[in-house]
Nucleic acid binder design. Structure first.
Length: 153
DNA sequence: GCCAACGTTGGC
DNA sequence: GCCAACGTTGGC
């Protein structure tokens, strides 16, 4: 089983939006970064565990837990000119972009903020979230880092 | 294949 | 709102 952190801007799609979705499940569309796509394509499997992270907001940090409930499949929003993340270069015959389905599990008991996470550089050495300049919206989390972060809760 | 210009991300 | 960091684009 693998562990992941998924970033979302709460103004666009929050942990509550996922909780309130039908079946508490939503497809994670709109990923338009090759490295993030490759993580989804090559590393994500049904049953993988997810930290749901709120970015670009007043208090960025981990707000909940979710689960991957599908492998990667074509992101159809790339084919639709009315969609925000339309990509005319993604060919339906050979889709450039992929998405997975994510199901809500629970909120964390409290916000595990980015600033708090940064206070543990030894325990979280190598964690992509606190590497300088990191902008990935999909990133792997090691089992060790996962367990440590949950222990902060 | 290089690299300048540009657009985006996302913390602060 | 600012701006550093980074990815992508496209001219050459």
């Amino acid at each position: 089983m693998n562990y992941w952190l998924l970033k979302s801007e709460p103004d666009a799609f929050s942990i509550d939006d996922l909780k309130n979705a039908p079946g508490k499940t939503e497809h994670w569309d709109g990923v338009r970064n090759y490295q993030a796509r490759n993580f989804m394509r090559d590393g994500m499997h049904k049953g993988d565990q997810v930290f749901f992270y709120h970015s670009n907001c007043k208090e960025p940090g981990i707000v909940g837990l979710a689960e991957i409930v599908s492998g990667a499949y074509p992101d159809h929003t790339a084919f639709d000119a009315n969609e925000k993340y339309f990509d005319p270069k993604s060919d339906p015959e050979n889709p450039r972009w992929l998405m997975v389905d994510v199901r809500y599990k629970r909120k964390t008991k409290r916000l595990i903020s980015l600033s708090e996470i940064k206070q543990h550089p030894e325990q979280l050495d190598g964690f992509a979230l606190i590497r300088r300049g990191n902008r990935l919206s999909v990133m792997p989390v090691s089992k060790q880092h996962w367990d440590f972060i949950l222990s902060l809760e």
